[in-house]
Design a protein around this nucleic acid. Structure first.
Lengths: 348, 348
DNA sequence: CGGCGGAACGTAAACGTTTTCATCGAAACT
DNA sequence: AGTTTCGATGAAAACGTTTACGTTCCGCCG
């Protein structure tokens, strides 16, 4: 329809006012007669005027865009995380610039740097970033919120999942149900979440079953590693009564190993995971796990970021923690109270 | 570290040259002595200079950003789609601005409009858009690629999944295996994909089993609707030998309905779905389905978009179609000759 | 030796806004 | 009525780039 793109000058001419007045009207700054407002609005509509965001950014220094840096976009976790961020961002009129799939620290640095100047703030979830990394790659005045990061610096507030408490609660649950020995399948060596979950396992064991031996086999968050770990556990002289895996995919792999060997779950060995991925509701038996409200994580992150962007320093603690909940299904061998949990997640 | 943000002027002063030369060097335009180049590069590095993208966009009219408009970000499909787009975009040095979760046509229009001027091109997947919608909400010179859309306009090229062929192939497979009657569970009434898949079903039936009755029950892509549809099918006087569901979630719901009723799958009734979601590999029996390379869809879309952005009109047809493949697992009751080897190592 | 072409580089205009400042008239005090 | 105050408005500067256009200088050919 529009032949060329209309600028603020065109609108001013059309409305027979100055460009300053047009700007005032369109930004709702006040100090303009109702008549002028009307004239400007009409003219703008007539010309299909849309303010040029580049010019606006140039002079105001704000982009109304926030950046999300993630290690990947695939999988439930990131998918839902970014959805939570996007929803909260749109509610505030902010755009979302995403960047993912960083193979190494250099790749991540490049991603972060190219976002510089294009965003008003960033939400970063990456194993590669630490305080020094940020100091080096970002302007000191750019608000940043870290997700799921061990960094504890006053300059960079972070929001973490309460892995320790969640893991601890699940292991305690397994013990309470009557499983006197609980083994643990670890996650990748360097992974922060995995380390925290192991801490929770150790804490629960030493608190509730100080005499039971600690049985720990290594995994790496993949289903395959869970399968291997399952076979390893079966080969043990003294089999554990229950297994707590660092995440759900590992638990599922372990489950298949047991099934294959004819070991019944949960009658012979109980299994529990962490994350509450969708699959947990579709395997047989239904997988007990620890659930995290990932969308909430994204939303909280964006909220904190906007506070930062509005100049409010991080109020209160600079590290917030997100609660997680034990979800009892079938695989942990507890009484089958709530089977209704296999419903798909209709809405959030 | 840096006290203030350095501008091109600062670099020019530091290197004792003009800003024009700085620009030339940094953009690799040539016409500059090796000496000057060196001086500029050194100065820029010393000051941690990063060009202001807003100023650059203002004068060049390019943002090096592409926008992705999706109905949602949740679920495997969108998750992987956006990942494919992001990967391809980064490979070309383009940024990705996402916008999702549009409840209605007005919401979508607002999203599309606010992106105007912030992006060099857009990839749109939305049931709300048609040619008229785009004409109304977008500048006529903005390159756009439509995904999975019935719009067939020379101005707006689109990339579609070959739903018809995929559905047709799957239904033919079910018939070939020996199931003489195949029922169909539909998707949401207005959904384009769902309609195409139904067409495929009808085509296969009339081609390979013209005498068999068409048994069609309605669903809406949700697991619950599949469950209801399953019960409906069981109540039928003449039960079908096989069921083809418009998507995997529906198929899974149907599967549960059968299981609950003591009907064996695939011995009593075979089931097949569409999409090849992750869950298809975890239900019992393993779900046969039609797989689509979603990441490829995203990648193709971005490729086409970049061609458009570089001025090349849509070469060849303005509608491209992406192939899909029948994945034979257990639920369709075929002989387990070709158990695809791309499965996770779990259940064998 | 004079003019000429071209390479290297600088000056300044342009991009489309926001915002400060000045101007002007009218309303509101004394 | 004179002065002040204030609200509405416009002119112009500023934001940080890219780029068209000059300028300078050098080597080269006639």
């Amino acid at each position: 329809m529009t032949t060329k793109k209309a600028t603020i000058k065109d609108v001013a001419r059309e409305a027979k006012v100055s460009i300053a007045s047009v700007s005032r009207v369109l930004n709702g700054l006040g100090g303009v007669t109702a008549d002028t407002q009307d004239a400007v609005r009409k003219a703008a509509a007539r010309l299909h005027y849309v303010p040029d965001s580049a010019a606006r950014s140039l002079i105001t220094g704000r982009t109304h865009t926030i950046g999300a840096v993630l290690p990947d976009l695939y999988g439930e976790f990131f998918s839902e995380l970014i959805r939570g961020i996007d929803l909260a961002a749109r509610a505030r009129g902010l755009h979302l610039l995403v960047s993912s799939s960083h193979d190494g620290v250099e790749d991540a640095a490049a991603a972060v740097r190219t976002m510089r100047g294009r965003v008003d703030g960033m939400i970063i979830l990456s194993e590669f970033v630490d305080g020094e990394f940020l100091d080096r790659n970002l302007p000191s005045d750019l608000p940043v919120v870290l997700l799921d990061s061990p960094v504890d610096s006053p300059r960079y507030p972070s929001i973490n999942i309460d892995n320790i408490a969640g893991a601890q609660a699940m292991v305690k649950h397994l013990l309470d149900v009557g499983h006197d020995s609980v083994a643990f399948i670890t996650g990748p060596a360097g992974n922060y979440d995995a380390q925290e979950r192991e801490k929770g396992y150790r804490a629960a064991m030493s608190a509730s079953a100080p005499d039971a031996p600690l049985q720990i086999v290594t995994g790496d968050f993949t289903e395959e590693s869970g399968y291997r770990a399952g076979r390893e556990l079966l080969a043990l002289a003294k089999r554990p009564r229950a297994v707590f895996a660092a995440n759900d995919m590992t638990a599922v792999g372990c489950l298949y190993a047991f099934k294959e060997a004819g070991v019944r779950v949960p009658e012979d060995i109980a299994i529990a995971g962490f994350d509450d991925i969708l699959i947990a509701r579709y395997v047989t038996p239904l997988l007990s796990t620890v659930s995290v409200s990932i969308a909430d994580l994204g939303k909280s992150a964006l909220l904190l970021l906007t506070e930062l962007m509005e100049g409010k320093g991080p109020q209160g603690a600079n590290t917030r923690t997100l609660r997680c909940d034990v979800v009892v299904r079938e695989s942990c061998g507890a009484h089958k109270t709530n089977v209704a949990t296999k419903q798909p997640p209709a809405l959030v």
